[in-house]
């Protein structure tokens, strides 16, 4: 899992950004994510998490500093390739699923990459199988349950075979079963993950490493367990564990079942 000599999948250096209205959201962010890592990006509302995420695929352009993806600098000239490498799953699946059927929606990204015919179809079905939604390929997305739509949203991005999957609040608005099913899906994926979340137990369950962003700066970067048990740090940055949850008493998170492409034991329970 360690990086070796290859460049980090995500390499953010000294990134600063101010919105056109003058509001500065990021003040020199440094963040490196290496291949195969699962990293949680934590921080209170308004910390600049979403702003940072929108820099990763070039929607925003850095005011100062640089962002590069597997060695490729994010900029106008490589935009298409950067957007293939960085797959963003947005918070509201209704924003992400805009086509008439699940299949067409998952095909949208790879189609933009130039895939056609059987190759496109294979890519679509592979992505849907990874999230356990292959049986719903011909359904209109707005007829699915919220949890199913969230999983399809993940598939729309997986179909582009990204190097890093960026999830914005993946567990928000999910019922506990859907939340757990999504965790199973994410754990079985063989892809680097950056997960923006307020759901700290979810971060502990899925991400060995956590980065805390506050007021546009990285204020902590370490093992999720250490971050969540550092009471002074947590208090200083408006992070709070939900009532009754104590990482010290939870024990180790479920073992990662990765590597076996899509056939992780966790996923099987998803395809009901």
């Amino acid at each position: 899992m360690s990086a070796g000599r290859e460049p980090p999948v995500l390499d953010v250096r000294g990134l600063a950004y101010a919105y056109p209205d003058g509001h500065q959201a990021l003040y020199g962010v440094d963040l490196q994510v290496h291949r195969g890592e699962r990293v949680a990006l934590l921080g209170p509302n308004g910390a600049g998490k979403t702003t940072l995420v929108l820099h990763l695929n070039g929607i925003h352009t850095a005011g100062a500093g640089s962002v590069s993806v597997s060695g490729l600098p994010v900029g106008k000239e490589h935009l298409q390739e950067v957007r293939r490498r960085v797959g963003i799953v947005f918070q509201d699946p209704d924003d992400q699923l805009f086509m008439g059927s699940v299949r067409a929606d998952v095909a949208f990204g790879p189609h933009n990459l130039g895939l056609r015919g059987a190759a496109l179809e294979a890519r679509v079905m592979a992505a849907l199988e990874q999230v356990g939604m292959a049986a719903y390929a011909d359904r209109p997305p707005h007829h699915l349950s919220f949890g199913q739509r969230r999983r399809v949203a993940v598939a729309t991005v997986l179909a582009m075979e990204p190097e890093v999957l960026v999830l914005d609040e993946p567990s928000s608005n999910l019922d506990p079963a859907s939340r757990r099913e999504l965790a199973d899906v994410l754990r079985a994926l063989d892809v680097t993950v950056l997960m923006v979340t307020h759901d700290l137990p979810y971060a502990l369950e899925l991400c060995p490493r956590s980065v805390v962003l506050h007021d546009g700066q990285v204020v902590a970067d370490g093992a999720t367990y250490d971050v969540l048990t550092d009471d002074a740090l947590m208090r200083a940055h408006r992070l709070e564990l939900p009532f009754g949850f104590d990482p010290r008493t939870v024990g180790a998170p479920p073992a990662a079942s990765r590597g076996g492409h899509g056939s992780g034991s966790g996923v099987d329970s998803v395809t009901t």
Partner: peptide
């Protein structure tokens, strides 16, 4: 935005 992110 979501469309651009998927290479639209």
């Amino acid at each position: 935005l979501a469309m651009l992110s998927r290479g639209y």
